[in-house]
Structures are given as C-alpha cells and as structure tokens.
Design a protein around this nucleic acid. Structure first.
Length: 320
DNA sequence: GTTTCAATAT
DNA sequence: AATATTGAAA
C-alpha cells in the first residue's frame, strides 16, 4: 500500500514482518473459541482474572459475560499494538474482530428507555435510539436486538394491564409469580413510561412526562439526520463522539493499546462510565437493598449537575 | 442502497 | 435466556 518501495524490497521482505508476538492475537480471532477448544489450542483457557478479590458484582460495570468472545491473551503484552514506526498496517485490523457480546446492564437499559421515551415509540427505531444513547461502541444491531425484546416486554405488560391477571412473563397458565426471568428485573429497573403502554406517542400536546432526561431540546428526526455521512449528531452527541471517535469506525478496538497492554484482564465487554464512583459493597455479594434491587447511582450520574452528560462507553476505561 | 423488523440461530 | 445474525420488506 505504500508506493515508495525500493527496487529490492523483495530481498528484505522479512524485515517488514511484524514480530511473531504481534501475530498471535490475530489467530485467536480467526478461529472460533469452540474450534480453539476442540483443537486444544490454549488460546482461551482462562477468562477468570481475579478469583481472589471479588471485583464486586454490585459494581456498575464489569458484567463479564461468562462465555464471551475474544479474549486477549494476558501473556501477550505487545498484542495488537501493531503498526509500529513504519506504519505498515495503519489501522483497525480490528474491524473484523468479533466483538464480545453486549451485556445490557441496568445503566445501559436506562439510557435505552430514556431514549425511547423521548423519541416516542413511533420514532424509536434502532438507529435513532442508538444515536440518542450515545454510548460509544454500541451498535445499531445491539439496540435493534434489545428493542425487539423490549417491545415484547411492553406487549406483555399491556396485556396484563388490560386483560388478564397473568404474570408479565406472559405465561397465561402460570401463577402470577414475579417471573423467573432476569428480564423482569432488568426491565423493572427502569421505569416504563406510561404512554408506552397506551400506545400513543407523547406529542407536543401530550402531558408533560417526567421524562426530560438529556439533550435539552428533543432532537427530531430532522435534527438528527442530516450532517454528512458521519451521521446526524446533535451538538451534544457530536461533542461526546468526537473525543472517542469510533461509532462509525469502531467495530474493533482502536483502543487496543490500552486493552491489551494495560488491562488484559479487564473484560472488554463491560460498560463503564467516566467517573470514579464505587459502590463498595460488603464482602458479601453486592445486593442493594433497594426496591428493585438495582442501585441507580448512575441515574444521576448520567447527567452532570452542570448538565453535561458523561460519556458512556463499552470500552474498558481507566475506571478504577 | 440503507434501515427496520420478525424470525431464527448461537 | 440473552443477545446475535439473518433475510425479507419497507
């Protein structure tokens, strides 16, 4: 890809090759974890970082998916760093990397619900929701998938409130238990705007909902979707985006250096806020005595007192 | 061509 | 069960 090659480059082609250790992590991504296991490749042996000290399950981030995707070999510090001084391979080999599956933490879900609430159910489509949430690393399909499930949940809720006395789990025949699902807990962790259930949208004439979360002026479709390719972002969002770039490009880990070098053990998956709060729970598993079982420390955290919204990211951060 | 949505796959 | 991926329809 560079045109300034010497005539005899072929004599020294080896020099261009990256050191072996830079190649290793790639192999991990090229084969599925299953295959790796099947062939006894020690690629992904131990996702378990710190067994000793509980990373506090009550903690806000660090929801490690038990069997999440690519793991970055902790023993390979220089992994993924790539593109040395030569700049041989400038960027994102990561685009093709399979990203770990998203875990919808209550915080994430909260943003989701807020976004949906402000768009109105009619305008709430994956792309728009995603934009409003402005969580970097979050993809449209992530949202689409969640939205699908959320709609089912809402439908169930409607069904209950109208007709029957069945539990939200939709199991008509079942007793009205609180459901066996985590889903219930997750969805219960965020208030469901009433108009969601009535199926109408909070038009301009609608009664003032208690929802006026972020973005002072509710961005309309028109507001959102112009600007060039990079997508319509309102000023707030644009601000947020630009410092972490990505969104469009992301797909892999640009932040590799950090990921692989600094905190190999950090689940690349969890969601983190850019602040240093710590729900230091008692040694016991973090069970918050709140009604719904979730602390919503971030409910306030999401919005700075000054109105500035903190960035939410799926990437590991220095958050310690 | 892009995005949504429901179905289906992991 | 939770999320991802797919494919038809908008």
């Amino acid at each position: 890809m560079r045109e300034e090659e010497e005539p005899s480059w072929f004599a020294r082609w080896e020099e261009q090759l990256p050191p072996p250790e830079e190649l290793t992590p790639l192999s991990q991504s090229l084969i599925t974890p299953d295959l790796a296991l099947a062939f006894d490749i020690p690629a992904v042996p131990n996702p378990n970082p710190t067994p000793g000290s509980n990373p506090s399950p009550g903690s806000l981030h660090t929801h490690l998916t038990p069997s999440s995707g690519p793991h970055f070999d902790p023993s390979d510090p220089s992994a993924g760093a790539s593109s040395g001084p030569h700049g041989g391979c400038p960027d994102e080999p990561a685009r093709t990397l399979k990203r770990p599956r998203l875990v919808w933490t209550p915080q994430l879900h909260k943003r989701f619900v807020d976004a949906v609430a402000h768009l109105g159910i009619k305008n709430a489509v994956p792309k728009t929701i995603m934009q409003l949430m402005s969580v970097d690393g979050l993809t449209r399909e992530n949202v689409a998938s969640h939205l699908q499930k959320y709609r089912l949940y809402l439908k169930r809720m409607q069904g209950i409130s109208n007709g029957g006395g069945s539990s939200p789990s939709g199991n008509g025949s079942g007793p009205l238990s609180a459901s066996d699902a985590d889903t219930e807990r997750l969805f219960a962790s965020a208030p469901v705007p009433h108009h969601f259930l009535t199926g109408r949208s909070p038009g301009p004439t609608a009664a003032p909902d208690p929802y006026m979360p972020f973005v002072p002026a509710v961005p309309t479709m028109s507001t959102l979707q112009h600007h060039h390719q990079q997508m319509g972002l309102n000023h707030h969002q644009f601000y947020n985006q630009q410092r972490s770039n990505a969104l469009g490009q992301f797909n892999g880990f640009d932040h590799h250096g950090f990921l692989t070098r600094s905190m190999p053990a950090q689940p690349p998956q969890a969601i983190s806020m850019h602040h240093h709060h710590r729900m230091v729970g008692p040694a016991g598993i973090g069970i918050m005595p709140s009604g719904n079982g979730y602390m919503d420390e971030l409910d306030m955290g999401a919005r700075g007192a000054g109105g500035a919204r903190r960035e939410l990211t799926l990437f590991p951060t220095g958050d310690h």
